[in-house]
């Protein structure tokens, strides 16, 4: 079935921006999406994965090696041919075992040949793509830890069952959850690069528009995709431009100063806030085709880069977003 076009998603601007930033700058370290069920969290993530141009891999490689990395994976892959495949989108099920996530001893080969070999898990499948974890707040802590660790290092290291394997696993980690159902530990939350809050569109016309588009897409997926093709191409060009511009994107000193001041004002814990803020601002500036990072870029990404890092004052009813916005107003207006 054809995926829903990314640009046809109604509203959800913050989430779309965050996803684009993550697509341009994978080092950002994952996006945490807070929101109720049925708000289109996974639709947006899937749509972006489907939109991206196919990746070139060594034919038959189970680890998604790029052609110039041939033979560097644990298999190692040997095929001299290249193949195109869609950007992987892996949906991590809630009850996934560690085996399935990181990979395990290949039982089939062990049984057949008495051979010790590695069966890649979901992390290998997600390489160069997206790993989506719905209700990540309900996932066992040790698995969340592991995911964040691999997402940050870009490498999966397996040392178990007599196996000693390492393989590349660079992916954009997208976690979603509903804070009403229990929270993620702050230590884990802090390790996500960006966090966005998704709500259902409240206006009736928006909701009618959603139904109209979904029904149109269901009736004629191809025709619908055709209608949105121009918009989709525009997003693709924007991503390509962002990726090209990002390495040379300059962050002027005064913007760095702004970032530090803002983090101090909202008392964001640790240095990760500043770093992410800067990276996200760079990526956004690159996406927008700017020559250098400006304060407006910083302000646009500040809520998503910082809101999950504020120390929670349990007696303070004000939401994190409001606190950041207040600080931005006080500092920069």
């Amino acid at each position: 079935m054809a995926r829903f076009p990314f640009s046809a998603i109604v509203g959800q601007d913050e989430m779309k921006t965050a996803l684009l930033i993550a697509a341009v700058e994978p080092a950002i370290g994952g996006v945490m999406v807070f929101g109720d069920r049925g708000t289109g969290k996974s639709t947006a993530a899937r749509a972006l994965a489907a939109l991206l141009p196919p990746i070139t891999v060594v034919e038959g490689c189970r680890f998604g090696c790029e052609p110039d990395q041939r033979g560097t994976c644990p298999d190692p892959c040997t095929s001299g041919r290249k193949a195109k495949q869609a950007v992987p989108f892996v949906d991590l099920p809630l009850g996934a075992t560690e085996d399935r996530v990181i990979g395990a001893l290949d039982l089939e080969r062990a049984l057949r040949a008495g051979e010790k070999s590695f069966e890649p898990g979901l992390l290998a499948r997600a390489h160069r793509g997206f790993l989506y974890v719905d209700e990540i707040n309900l996932l066992e802590d040790h698995l969340v830890d592991l995911l964040l660790d691999v997402a940050a290092s870009g490498e999966n290291l397996v040392e178990r069952e007599g196996l000693s394997v390492r393989h590349r696993a660079r992916f954009v980690l997208i976690g979603s959850g509903n804070p009403e159902e229990g929270e993620l530990r702050p230590q884990l939350l802090d390790r996500f690069g960006l966090s966005v809050e998704v709500r259902t569109p409240e206006s009736i016309p928006d909701r009618v528009e959603i139904m109209r588009r979904c029904s149109a897409q269901e009736r004629d997926p191809e025709g619908f995709a055709g209608q949105w093709d121009a918009a989709e191409q525009k997003v693709l060009r924007q991503i390509a431009r962002g990726q090209k511009k990002l390495p040379d994107m300059d962050v002027p000193d005064d913007v760095l100063h702004d970032a530090a001041e803002l983090c101090a004002a909202v008392r964001a814990d640790g240095l990760r806030g500043e770093l992410t803020l800067m990276r996200a601002a760079r990526a956004l500036a690159a996406l927008k085709g700017a020559k250098a990072v400006r304060r407006e870029h910083l302000l646009e990404v500040a809520p998503m880069a910082l809101r999950h890092r504020l120390r929670r004052d349990v007696l303070d009813e004000t939401g994190s977003t409001a606190r950041i916005e207040r600080a931005m107003e006080e500092l920069f207006e």
Binding site: R37, T39, I204, V208, S215
Partner: peptide, 23 residues
């Protein structure tokens, strides 16, 4: 569509999935 969306709002049904199912 408006009638469905309006009804969902009046009943506090937030999920878009529910709306699509109703349709």
């Amino acid at each position: 569509l408006s009638a469905l969306a309006g009804t969902a709002e009046a009943l506090g049904v937030d999920s878009v999935r529910a709306l699509l199912f109703a349709m």
